[in-house]
Structures are given as C-alpha cells and as structure tokens.
C-alpha cells in the first residue's frame, strides 16, 4: 500500500532559545490534501515550517509525518523523509552561484546518474510549468522576487515529492501571478493525487481558492484547526475579523504627532538643500 503522507502536530512547543514562538499547538494535515497555515506576520508560520521540515528541533511535543515521529528518527529515516519532500523557502533560497536552470536541476544532477541533456530537458519542462523557460540561463540575482519564488517552486517539485511545503508562495506577487501560482498548486494536486501540500500564507484569496484544511495561529497558539468549511462557519470573533479583513484598530490608534523639535529641524533641513 502507498504510504499516506499526512502530518500530525501534537502538543508542539517551538521557539528560538528562550523565546517561545508557538505553544502547545495540535493540528493535523491530512494526506493528499492542500492545507494552509494562516496567521499574521511574525506569528511563527515560517518557524513552524522549519520544524516540520526538520531544520529545527521542537522544545516539546511531537511532529509525525506519514506515521513516523520526526523528533525520534535516525539519520537514515530522516534522509528517506527528506527525499520525499519539496520545500519552497520564503525567498526562494536559490543558490546564488548557479543559474536558474542549474538550480532547478540540482536535485537531479546531485542524486541521479542521467545524461546531462536529459536533466536539462527535464529542468526546462518544470521551468515551463512555472513559465520561466525564457530566463533559464539567468542568475537568481537577475530575477524579480516573484520569479525567484516560482523558480524555487520549480526546484521543489522537480523530484515529484510526496510532501510539498511552500512558505508564502503568493505573497509579494501581483494578483494575476498569484492566481497562476494557485492554479499551479491545484494542477499539481490533481496530477499527483497522493501529494500532500502544506502552504504557509496570509493570503485569504488563495486560501479560498485552494485550501481544504487550515491551521490558524495567533499569539503563539493554534486557535483553529479544521476544514475550510468549518473555518468559514466559525463564530470566533478573531476568525470573523480575519475573514472579513476588519481590524479592531481605527485610524485614531495610529495617529500621533511629531515632536515639534523634530519637525522644526526637519523643515530647516528641507529648506536648505
């Protein structure tokens, strides 16, 4: 039987040093579905993803992927797991000294014994999926932020992973490109029915279009975990505000006046270029 690549978080507490970022989070992301971790900026979404990938070790609690406890895994098991994972980092994390094509082909060139031409063809095919064939020979520093993200996604999917983890695939993209990114994820989802896709985002629009399950984090706690429909049905005031993008804050909360000493000095500086 095929392994079911589901992810379970159990009473997970994570952080950096003595700084606790998430406390006692329990959630599960079922296999073969698209799940989304929602939360405000700085709430710890990327941190949670790093722990799921296995780049950091949780303070307490358990992360179970496909039935294996990731916190108690030997080296061989960890590598077996990593080979089935594709990860898109928040800013792409492309290797700066390789071209886009070499970056995307890297997992193949490093691990497989295949002729160069074949690998190149395969990398170009995947770059085509993210509409980047024409910049295949550029270096990452010559790309825009959105292009880097798409190239990062191409590199993540070139090995047909069973588990695709994306950190904010649509943030910083224009609405059309973001929509194409969503469609690309949906296409992958259709093409590979067993693939579990976990997306970190704060983009409600793409949540609406692609997600099946969600975990919402706020102030270091997982305040909601369940299906998209349950999310829309929930009466929790925070979730309602999140859904409707209505902040409690008013214009008055942010207005404040500049110290007169600063403003007079500033006008002096502006007047004498």
């Amino acid at each position: 039987m095929e392994t079911a690549w589901d992810i379970d978080l159990c009473a997970l507490t994570i952080g950096y040093g003595s700084h606790i970022v998430l406390h006692n989070v329990t959630a599960s992301f079922p296999a073969g579905r698209i799940s989304m971790i929602l939360g405000e900026s700085g709430s710890g979404k990327s941190t949670l993803l790093r722990h799921i990938i296995g780049l950091s070790v949780p303070k307490s609690g358990r992360i179970t992927i496909a039935g294996t406890d990731c916190t108690r895994m030997d080296d061989a098991e960890a590598r077996r797991l990593r080979r089935r994972m594709g990860v898109l980092f928040q800013d792409g994390a492309l290797l700066g000294s390789l071209t886009v094509l070499e970056n995307v082909a890297l997992p193949l060139t490093e691990h497989l014994r295949l002729p160069k031409e074949l690998i190149r063809k395969e990398a170009l095919r995947v770059l085509g999926m993210v509409e980047l064939e024409q910049v295949a020979d550029y270096y990452p520093s010559q790309l825009s932020g959105g292009m880097r993200k798409r190239a990062g996604l191409a590199r993540a999917i070139i090995t047909n992973p069973s588990l695709l983890l994306c950190d904010e695939p649509t943030s910083g993209l224009d609405p059309l490109t973001a929509a194409r990114m969503d469609i690309l994820l949906l296409t992958l989802h259709r093409q590979f029915p067993g693939m579990t896709i976990l997306v970190v985002s704060h983009d409600l629009e793409s949540f609406h279009h692609i997600a099946d399950y969600t975990l919402v984090i706020k102030d270091g706690l997982g305040i909601f975990s369940g299906t998209k429909d349950a999310f829309y049905a929930s009466n929790d005031p925070y979730l309602v505000r999140y859904r409707t993008r209505s902040s409690e804050a008013t214009v008055a909360d942010f207005s404040s006046t500049m110290d007169p000493r600063v403003s007079s000095e500033l006008s002096r500086w502006l007047a004498n270029p």
Partner: peptide, 25 residues
C-alpha cells in the same frame, strides 16, 4: 563571506532539505 551569505539566506538549509550534504558540497 560566500558561505556566510548562503547561510543567512537559507541556501544551506535548502541544500540539506534536498538531501545534498552541505558539508560535502
């Protein structure tokens, strides 16, 4: 400087995630 920049921009983590031994690389 080169390895340091790779470290702070997640490139070394990306290598490890692709199961490419970053030390050997």
């Amino acid at each position: 400087a080169e390895i340091g920049v790779m470290r702070i921009s997640d490139q070394i983590d990306a290598l490890d995630v692709m199961d490419i031994n970053s030390m050997a690389y």
